[in-house]
Design a protein around this nucleic acid. Structure first.
Lengths: 228, 228
DNA sequence: GCATTTTATCAAGGCTTTATTAAATCCCTA
DNA sequence: TAGGGATTTAATAAAGCCTTGATAAAATGC
């Protein structure tokens, strides 16, 4: 069952597309603005996003960028809907990260063909993992909650992202640079030492004994490694 | 055998990267301009593309876009090389579809870490060698850990790099000069004798009997050889 | 065997990296 | 817009590593 998320503020168009897709056996969710759309991307794990470039709130290009940045969503194929003329340039020239685009107005048949094409070349949908577990540590990715031995631990955003990045790469040393680009974003501005401080807070919360860390191990001169 | 295509017009940099990657067991192809690079992408089916953003002919961003669009190549991971500070950042900020970015200037070790990270995440990736094994000695490259008969041995950074360099060239005598350029970097400043000292520590840790080394053998007047 | 060259070993100083803490700043929410 | 947590910076302490230089030992050539 392929789930498609349509983010489009022209309700008539959205309904048309939804009907067409449903009649072809897709499951369809819709959203009429960018912020809500982004939430749904994260909550619903669609297999495909159909995204209007002009949206109230968060615009399509920004949304696309955000989706592409988050490793939990970056694999989801995106088809952009654009008005003829201006915006094609933006998508094509500046690279939005979209997999394909359709210029309005378009025939439903063509639209469907694009959907099929994009889905065909989408890499075998990765099994979405929502839980990271390590001994008595349990992380829910969609819920963004962490439990240690059944008790919830409150982590800040950065702490959570840092922890999951480390856990996703269990056993592998991650350099501060890599951590910064993955957690802070590739265009980060903060000092490398900032990572140390966050590691410190994290250890305080998830280690048995923060002064003798077993889970997040320092590899001098290189970075940090999550062990378990 | 993982094949990497480097598209970079600064020949010195390209060669450095190529050397480093080859010494890690990758197969490397290079190209100095965009059009030729694109041809090679199509002809050689690399498993990874390292792409400079500023290129003669076809620029990196456009190339990236084209690669991403073509279903035959869209799955290939791309690492972009960018210069910090210019407006290039902004363009990159709009998401070119690359999997990671490295900002020049960067350390080769950092570069390699990113290559490994990207390859690890790539769908249907070729299996990257992460283990060096020799009898009861077992080395994890990404984890930077060493085990002797199942027990972990703590090595310093230099010791680790030195050991892996030797192990990767099992049976081959490496001169101190070569060791220095590989482990310390091509612009090393230290004395040749420093190698001896590190070999000493290494033997202490990995040999059965450090005063009668079997694994790291001295070849008088030439260098050292790892035997097993 | 003797002189010379090369390697092994050791310990200490110097340097780099990381840990830790507190204070400053940012940012969201009420 | 004030309060409060989150984040970052800065400063200092602590830890760990690398290099050096001296000396001993070993290998080589004569």
């Amino acid at each position: 069952m392929t789930k498609v998320l349509i983010i489009e503020d022209e309700v008539t168009l959205a309904n048309n597309l939804a009907d067409k897709l449903r009649s072809e056996g897709f499951t369809v969710i819709t959203s009429v603005d960018g912020e809500d759309g982004l939430e749904k991307v994260r909550a619903e794990h669609p297999d495909l996003i159909v995204l209007d470039i002009m949206l109230p709130g968060l615009d399509g290009l920004s949304l696309c960028r955000i989706v592409r940045r988050d490793s939990a969503t970056s694999h989801i194929p995106i088809i952009m809907l654009t008005a003829r003329g201006t915006e094609v340039d933006k998508i094509v020239g500046l690279e939005s990260g979209a997999d394909d685009y359709v210029v309005k107005p378009f025939a439903l048949g063509e639209f469907l063909a694009r959907v099929r094409a994009v889905m065909r070349r989408a890499p075998g949908r990765p099994v979405l993992q929502d839980e990271l577990v390590s001994n008595d540590l349990q992380v829910s990715l969609t819920g963004r909650r962490v439990f240690k031995g059944g008790d919830e631990i409150k982590l800040s955003n950065k702490e959570f992202d840092l922890l999951t990045e480390l856990m996703r790469n269990r056993g592998v040393v991650l350099s501060r640079d890599l951590i910064l680009t993955k957690v802070w974003g590739y265009d980060y501005f903060v000092d490398k030492r900032t990572v140390d401080v966050h590691i410190r807070w994290l250890r305080e919360k998830i280690e048995q004994d923060a002064s003798n860390p077993r889970r997040i191990v320092t590899v001098r001169g290189v970075g940090y490694r999550f062990e378990g």
